[in-house]
Write a protein that binds this DNA or RNA. Structure first.
Lengths: 349, 349
DNA sequence: GGCGCGAATGGTAACGGTAACATCAAGGCG
DNA sequence: CGCCTTGATGTTACCGTTACCATTCGCGCC
C-alpha cells in the first residue's frame, strides 16, 4: 500500500515467507462497515451498556464477520493500563514456585490480566530484567524474595505501580509482601530433629539467599542446645536430586558421625534418601532426613518424607488479590501477609 | 469519577495509596534536556551507531539522570513488533512442561523477547484465551498439542504470525511443529513390557488428548500379540501421585491378575509404586511399573523408575529458535521437527 | 568550483485505540 | 412551553514512540 512504489522483492529467496500480512482490520474499518463511529465500536466492545441494543448487535455482527481483533497495545497506550502483571521468579524448573505461578495466573486471568513471565536465574541480572520489563508498562509486578539491588528498588518505586514481594518476610517491603519467615522454618526444622533426640546432625544445603536464612535459623536453635552441625555440604542453587546424593556422599566422606540430615529442600532430601538406601542405611533408623517445601512427591516417597509445608497456592492467590485490589484503587487490607508454614511429620524422621 | 475537579480523598483511609504517579518521563523530556530531537534520542537508544559519539554520551547521561524508561507499548504500536512471544500450556504445576518453558524463556530473553504465559487448563477455553492474547500483538506463539478448535486455527492463521505447536506430531501443523509421536511412545512402552515377559498388564492412565494417543499405541502393540490389558483405570488430567495410588488400588479391587502396570506419566507411576509397596508388593518382582516423562525424580525413586525420556529442553529451545528464525525472516530449516524419545530402563521393570 | 556522497540530525505523520468534551433528540416536569 | 435531564452517538485530540523523508554540513574529486 501507499508510498513505496518500488518495494522490490528481496531478490534471492524472496517468495518464501511473508504472506504480505494483509493490513489488519482496525476499529475504523469495523466502524465504517457498521455505519457508526469508531468510538461507538469501542464502546460496544468495552462497555456495551452504553450502546443501544440495535447498534450493539450490528457492531457485533461486523466484528465477527471481519474477524476484528482489537489492538490491545494501542488501547493500553491511551488508557495507561496494560492489563499485564509481570512475575519474576528465579526459575521454574523447580516445583516450588510453579504452583504459585499457576494460582497467580489463573486468578489474574479471571480479571482479564495476563502474566508476563520473567526468569532471573537466581540473582543473575534481576535488575536488568526488571528494567526491561518496566518498559512494557505492567500494571503490577510480583517479585520473588525481598533482597533486591538498590537500583531495582528505586526503579520499582519510580514506576508507581503495585509491587508484591513473595516467599520471604521483611519489615520494610518495597510495597506489599506475602511470604513466611525462613529463619523460623529453619528453627522449626532444628527443633524437630532435637525433639527426636538427634544430636549429631549433618546439613545438605543450598546457598541461595532464602536458604541461607533457613540455615541461620537452624544453626541458632542448635547453638541454643550447645550443638554444632557435625558436617555441612553447601552447594549452589538449584537444588536437585543428584546434588542431594552427592551431598550425602560428601558428608559421609568427612568421616563425621551423624544420625540425621537436614536439607534445604525436598529434592535434596530425596537425593539423600536414595543415596543412603543405596548404601544400605535404613531410614529413619540409621539416618533421619528432613526436607523443605512439601513438593508433591514428598508424601509418596518410601519412606514418606518429613518436611516443611508451605501454602504455595495461597501465596500465588494472595499476591494476585493484593495486586488486583491495589490496581482497583482499594487499599489492600494488610500490606504484609505471613502465610506461615507447617512441619509435616512423616516416616523419614 | 470523571469530572470531579475536587478529587476528594476517600475520606477514611484516603491518604494511603496513589502517590499521584508524577507524569512519567518521555522521550521528548529527555530530548529537551539533552538539546536534541526526540528521534535522536530514539536512535541513541536503539541504534547508537547512527549517532555521533558526543551526542550519544549526552543522551545517555540524561537518560540515566532522569531515569527515563522507554514505553515499549508505544514503540511496538509504531513498529508493529511487540517482542512478545505468547506460550500456551495446559498447566504448569506439572513438571513436564516446566523445563521447556524455562528453556524457551531463556533463549528468547537473549534476543530481547519476553514470554507471555497462558494457561489453558487442558482444553477449557483455549480458544478464548488465544483470542485475548492475539490482541496483544505477539510476534509469535507457542501452543501445546496439535488439536485445536477450528476457530482457533482460523484466528491464528489470520494473525499472520509464526506459530509453533509442540509436544505432539501431525502431518498438518498450523505452521511449525516440534514434538514427538505419542503413539510410538505407547508402542515402545508395550514392547518393553512384552520383552520382559509380561502378559498380564494393567493400565493407570490419564484421559487427556496426548495420553490417549499413547494408550492407543500401547494397545495396538498388545493386540499384535493377541493380548488385552487385564484392567484399566482411566482418570482425568492432571496426573498426580494420589491418583496413581488410587489407580493401583482400583486395579487390585477388580480382582484381575497382572504382573505389570503401565502408567501414562511418572507421577502416576510413583503413586502406583508407593501403593504397591504399602501393600507389601515387591517391585519389580511382584509388580513391574513403567512411567512416562522421565521427570527429575524418576531416576531417584526406590526402585528407580523405568520410563520414557523426552528432551524437554530441546523442545523449548527448538521452538524458540524456530520462532526467532521466522521472525527474522529466515525460513526455518525444517517446519516439522521430531525430537524423538528414549525408553529408559531402570529398576522398576 | 561545482557536484555527489555520506554522516548526523530533525520535522512530521502515522500506529490504533479511547478520554474528554460536544451534540442532539426524547422525555419529565413545574 | 421552556428548561433540565438522560441516553446515544460523534468529533477531536492525544497516548509515546518510530518510519519516512527531508535538510544540513563537510569533504573528496574531477
Amino acid at each position: 500500500m501507499a508510498k513505496s512504489p518500488s518495494r522490490k522483492p528481496r531478490a534471492v529467496k524472496g517468495a518464501a515467507a511473508r504472506p504480505a500480512a494483509a493490513k489488519p482490520v482496525t476499529i475504523r474499518d469495523v466502524a465504517k462497515v457498521a455505519g457508526v463511529s469508531a468510538i461507538t465500536v469501542s464502546r460496544a466492545l468495552a462497555r456495551p451498556e452504553l450502546v443501544s441494543p440495535e447498534t450493539l448487535e450490528r457492531v457485533r455482527a461486523v466484528v465477527t464477520r471481519t474477524g476484528y481483533v482489537p489492538n490491545v497495545l494501542a488501547g493500553s497506550l491511551r488508557t495507561r493500563r496494560s492489563r499485564i502483571i509481570a512475575a519474576i521468579f528465579p526459575q521454574v524448573s523447580n516445583t516450588l514456585f510453579v504452583e504459585a505461578i499457576q494460582a497467580l495466573t489463573e486468578r489474574l486471568r479471571e480479571e482479564g490480566y495476563q502474566v508476563l513471565l520473567g526468569l532471573s536465574s537466581y540473582e543473575r541480572r534481576e535488575d536488568e530484567l526488571i528494567a526491561g520489563i518496566l518498559g512494557r508498562q505492567p500494571d503490577g509486578i510480583l517479585l520473588t524474595g525481598v533482597s533486591h539491588a538498590p537500583e531495582t528498588r528505586r526503579r520499582l518505586i519510580a514506576a508507581h505501580i503495585p509491587v508484591v514481594e513473595t516467599w520471604d518476610l521483611t519489615p520494610s517491603p518495597i510495597d506489599m509482601l506475602v511470604g513466611f519467615s525462613h529463619e523460623k522454618v529453619g528453627a522449626a526444622m532444628a527443633r524437630h530433629l532435637l525433639a527426636r533426640g538427634h544430636r549429631d546432625i549433618g546439613l545438605v544445603w543450598n546457598n541461595d539467599a532464602r536458604a541461607e536464612l533457613r540455615r541461620r535459623g537452624f544453626l541458632e536453635v542448635l547453638a541454643g542446645s550447645g550443638i554444632e552441625p557435625a558436617a555441612t555440604c553447601l552447594g549452589p542453587a538449584p537444588a536437585t536430586f543428584p546434588r542431594g546424593r552427592e551431598g550425602l556422599a560428601q558428608l559421609l566422606r568427612s568421616g563425621k558421625r551423624f544420625t540425621a540430615v537436614a536439607c534445604s529442600s525436598d529434592p535434596l532430601a530425596q537425593g539423600v534418601i536414595a543415596e543412603a538406601q543405596d548404601r544400605g542405611l535404613r531410614i529413619p533408623a540409621d539416618l533421619a532426613v528432613i526436607g523443605f517445601g512439601d513438593l508433591d512427591f514428598a508424601a509418596h516417597t518410601t519412606p514418606a518424607l518429613t518436611t516443611v509445608g508451605i501454602d504455595k497456592v495461597a501465596i500465588g492467590r494472595l499476591a494476585a488479590e493484593m495486586l488486583l485490589a491495589r490496581i482497583a484503587g482499594r487499599e489492600a487490607g494488610e500490606r504484609i501477609v505471613d502465610v506461615g508454614f507447617t512441619v509435616i511429620e512423616r516416616a523419614s524422621t
